[in-house]
Structure formats: C-alpha cells, structure tokens
Simulated assay, not measured.
Amino acid sequence: MRRHLLTSTTALVLLLGASQAYAGMDEAKTFLDTEINGLSTLDRSAQEAEMQWFVDAAKPFAGMEINVLSEGIPTHTYESTVLTKAFEAITGIKVNHQILGEGEVVQAVQTQMQTNRNLYDAYVNDSDLIGTHSRLQLAVNLTDFMAGEGKDVTLPTLDLKDFIGIKFTTGPDGKLYQLPDQQFANLYWFRKDWFDKPELKEKFKAKYGYDLGVPVNWSAYEDIAEFFSK
C-alpha cells in the first residue's frame, strides 16, 4: 500500500515540492496578487523566492494527479475551489479535492488502512487519529520523510514552529504524521466578578485546596462547576 499523506496542508507542502512547472512564475505572481495580497509576514521578494523554489522543484514531476479528501467546512471548500486551481496553474499538478461528510472521511481513512487500497493520496482528518497513524505506520512519517527521502521536495524555509497545535499531530514516538490545517477554537466564558470575590475565593480554596481561577485541566472544570452549582 502506498502510504498516504494526512491533512491538506501536508499535501500542499510536500506535493508542491514534488510537482511540475506547468506555467510558472507568471501564475505564481497572479496568485500572490489576488490571494496573498499583503497577508503574509514575508515581503514580496521573499514570497516570490519561495514560489520560484516551488516552480523549480516541480520540474521532474510533470503530469502528476493527486486525489485528496476532506470534510465540508469553509476552510476546505476554499482549498478545493481556489487553492487547487492555483496549485495546478503554478505547478501543472491536478489536484482532485473531494469534499464529503466527516463520518465518510473517517470511513475512507479506515477502509484504506484495512484494505491496503489507495483510495486517496492525502486526507484532511482530525488529529484525534494521531495514535492510530503512529501505531499502524500506514501514513507518511513526515519527520523522517522531510529529513530523508523528501528533503529535496520540502521547502527549505518551512518552519514547523509556524504551525499552531503541532504537538497534537505528533505521535507518541515523537514523529510528525500530520500538519495542522485548521482548528476549532475552544473558548471559556466565565463570570470574572464571581471569580474575584474574596469570600468565594476563600471558600473555594478551603474546599478544593487550590486557588479559584481559570481551569488548567478537566478536574478543575469539574470542581468549578460543582462549586458554583451549589
């Protein structure tokens, strides 16, 4: 079975480096003008330098076609309708980015792992599956790939510290199997005026043995919920 890449960002980083120069820098500059347009922390010359690297690294891979699957949320719709077209225009690689429901994505991942049939080349899947990927070793080990076999097709300026949540896509073996593509923010709303009341702070510490404050683990969530429910 050909090991599959996980998350569309992974596919974009590695496969951009493994693509062909179909049109080149004119299309890359159009993409920078229309889609990036001041949103990058890199100045224009650095952006164009990275695009030139993609174009040059792509040359040996003419005619490649890649199949990607993700669930239907706005981030992935943008990837499917905008980024895939830009990717093909710049590199000549056609990306078939299919969108299905979350359950169908998980089922496809499981089917591919169980049957050894290559249904898709890359998946955008939840980082909850990181343990499965680490145990079964059926997904690309990105740590070793980028340092070894895939070194020539990995952007030299790629900095993993730029990704939020990288620890959640790293296996127990310390190897990276996914690159974060998008995240759902978890917000904690609370009555700060209650948390600041001296009498409540005193009662909470007397009962639970630590200061009342924003919870740092699930046990604290449970303690706070119990305390304010009575």
Rank of each mutant, 00 (worst) to 15 (best):
A147P: 04
A220M: 15
V68Q: 07
F184E: 14
L136R: 09
K59V: 14
E199Y: 11
F87A: 03
V109M: 05
W53M: 07
N186A: 12
R191V: 05
G101D: 14
H97M: 07
S80N: 05
F61W: 01
L39M: 12
W194V: 06
T34H: 11
M146I: 09
I36R: 02
Y188G: 03
R44N: 04
D193C: 12
F31R: 00
R44H: 12
K85D: 00
S219R: 06
G38F: 02
M25H: 10
Y120D: 08
D211L: 01
A11I: 00
N67L: 12
F227D: 01
G17H: 06
D211T: 15
F195Q: 13
D33G: 06
G213Y: 03
T34V: 00
A86G: 06
A220D: 14
Q114S: 14
T143D: 05
F227Y: 03
Q110C: 09
L129S: 05
F190I: 01
D162W: 06
R3D: 13
H76D: 01
K197D: 09
L187M: 14
Y123R: 04
A147D: 02
I130Y: 02
G92M: 05
Q112F: 02
E71C: 11
L142G: 04
H76A: 06
G101P: 02
W53V: 07
L129E: 01
M25I: 09
R44P: 09
G150W: 01
D33E: 07
L200K: 04
L15Y: 10
A62P: 00
V105P: 00
I130K: 02
A21K: 15
K192H: 15
L14Q: 01
Y123M: 02
R44E: 11
T41L: 14
G72Q: 11
A89Y: 04
S229V: 05
L6Y: 12
P215V: 01
Y210Q: 11
L12V: 05
G72F: 10
L158T: 04
K192N: 15
L160G: 05
G209H: 11
P74H: 00
T41S: 14
K197A: 11
F145H: 12
R191L: 13
G213Q: 13
D211P: 13
E149A: 15
F184S: 15
Y22N: 13
L69F: 01
A11T: 09
L32P: 04
L158V: 00
T115C: 08
V106P: 00
G148S: 04
S219N: 10
G92T: 05
G17A: 08
Q107A: 15
G209F: 11
A46Y: 11
A108D: 11
R135V: 02
L179T: 00
A185V: 15
F195A: 08
